[in-house]
Design a binder for these strands. Structure first.
Length: 470
RNA sequence: GGUCCCAUCGUCUAGCCUGGCCUAGGACGGUGCCCUCUCAAGGCAUAAACACGGGUUCAAAUCCCGUUGGGACCA
């Protein structure tokens, strides 16, 4: 077989959502696996609802996760003459006709048909029309759909699906404003672009017999089709805004790593045995259409979170530090102007990456390390900053004051000496110190906390804590 | 309403095509234990599913039919 060509063809009428991204991902993986070509086409013929912002969101979202395209973006609005030529070809061949029926007329007839318990499809009136065209009406163009036989879709995922042609009516291919309809534009473009495999959401499965008929009328060989089941929300209905972010770039803002989102999405409807974690390379190697599931999948934010935590822990520390910086700046924790101390931020990442599932969570948890003085959790103060630990805290301060370098192991040594001298257990002293240094009872290892804070801030906070002991 | 798609733990899924290896496997989440300076991370263990009803067969999660439920498209 000749080279595989696939495309992702979103309408820029809203942000790129996770369902769309998964479709793009599967197309991309298939293309890369087969050493084929991945085309990006923007279906922007709905001029009222298409926006430049949405186009940017689509391109930005795909770039963020690393789905690069080989051709495009190709905009349908740049190709209007192409659709016009094809429509005229069908018109000239008697395979399409102009229809002057108005919306109102169609609505009336639809209701009548329903009342007679018939299919409310277009009755084909203008197909038989003769005589001069009615004045003052800009017509739509309709495709002459066969009214007998059936059309079979050999779907790569769903298997053979049979449609009765009598169910189909003469669909509109060009609107009265001259714009091609979805079905027509997609067919003309896929044929022109020599797309070999159309992999898309199964919301288009019902459109497919019409499209096949159009390919045939136009004299083109139809591509192979594969229809992906939808992604649902946890409540099993269509994924919506209520169930958390649905826009791809919102995940970036929420502190997710692109590889986590992609890894999560690839497992929604596809599997490779028991494997859960895949690098992009592994996905490309192992991807195949046969392993795509037919049933719809619910989007589980918890599993995504777990994967994100996994990638946060395993990603290169330098990279995570770079990614974290904007989040720190956004919170005013880092001066926007100043050059951050990267070595220090990397230490911070090392201390927190096992304790955070997103960059946002990491930034929030790191807050005590950016403040001059911490806000104390009063309950923790009452419980841990008690008279009994006062002598130990004083000893600790003295011990730390004598240090010229301030590193983990050396601090630990001095800390243990204090424990020995005061016969306190590790936890008896560590918790009060933790409260003194961070304001709360939860933090990274206590010596890491001290290193991050530095000697002076550590001592200052310990002194302040002693003043709080009553 | 019509057409089409789908149906394994709460969720993602393996197994289904090519029946027996399935007392149904893995992962997220849950629970318990271990580790431990707190919290995590990590390790170990555990509860949890073949929608239902008929067939076919020596044998069905796996094949066939129906029912029910969910979804999509069209209106």
């Amino acid at each position: 077989m000749s080279q595989i060509r696939v495309r992702f063809a979103p309408s820029p009428t809203g942000y790129l959502h996770v369902g769309g991204l998964r479709t793009a991902l599967f197309n991309w993986l298939f293309a890369r696996h087969e050493k084929g070509v991945f085309v990006l086409r923007i279906e922007d013929t709905d001029r009222e609802r298409s926006t430049p912002e949405a186009i940017q969101a689509i391109l930005g979202g795909m770039k963020w996760v690393g789905l690069d395209w080989d051709e495009g973006p190709i905009y349908q609005t740049d190709r209007l003459t192409l659709y016009k030529e094809h429509a005229e070809r069908l018109l000239a061949a008697g395979k399409a006709y102009l229809c002057y029926c108005t919306e109102e007329e169609l609505e009336v007839r639809r209701k009548e048909a329903l009342a007679r318990k018939e299919l409310p499809k277009y009755d084909g009136r203008c197909r038989r029309r003769s005589g001069p065209a009615p004045a003052g009406i800009s017509p739509v163009t309709r495709f002459v759909t066969p009214q007998a036989g059936h059309t079979i879709v050999h779907d790569l995922i769903k298997g053979d699906v049979l449609f009765d042609n009598t169910q189909l009516d003469d669909l509109i291919i060009v609107r009265s404003n001259g714009m091609p309809t979805y079905n027509f534009g997609a067919v003309v473009d896929d044929a022109q672009m020599k797309i070999t495999h159309v992999i898309r959401g199964d919301d288009h499965l019902n459109n497919t017999p019409r499209q096949i008929l159009l390919y045939q009328a136009l004299g083109y060989e139809p591509p192979r089709f594969g229809h992906l089941s939808m992604i649902l929300g946890m409540d099993k209905v269509k994924l919506s805004k209520r169930q958390g972010a649905t826009s791809v770039l919102e995940y970036q803002e929420a502190g997710y790593l692109p590889e986590a989102l992609v890894n999560y999405l690839v497992r929604l409807g596809w599997s490779h045995g028991d494997q859960e974690v895949f690098s992009l390379q592994e996905m490309i190697e192992k991807f195949s259409l046969e392993n795509i599931t037919k049933s719809p999948a619910a989007f589980d934010p918890d599993k995504l979170l777990w994967l994100n935590g996994h990638y946060l822990r395993h990603a290169d520390v330098k990279r995570v530090a770079e990614l974290l910086i904007p989040f720190l700046r956004m919170r005013g924790m880092l001066d926007v102007e100043a050059q951050p101390d990267r070595a220090w931020i990397e230490r911070l990442v090392l201390a927190f990456r096992e304790r955070a599932q997103t960059l946002v969570e990491m930034a929030d948890k790191a807050a005590p390390f950016f403040q001059e003085s911490v806000t104390m959790d009063q309950e923790a103060v009452a419980k841990y900053l008690v008279a009994a630990v006062r002598p130990a805290l004083i000893k600790l301060i003295t011990a730390l004051e004598g240090m010229s370098t301030f590193e983990h192991d050396a601090i630990e040594q001095r800390f243990k000496t204090v424990l020995a001298e005061t016969s306190l257990s590790m936890s008896k002293l560590a918790q009060p110190v933790r409260v003194a240094l961070t304001g709360g009872t939860v933090s990274p290892g206590i010596f890491d906390v001290m290193v991050l804070l530095g000697r002076d801030r550590t001592i200052a906070r310990l002194k302040k804590a002693i003043d709080l002991i009553r």
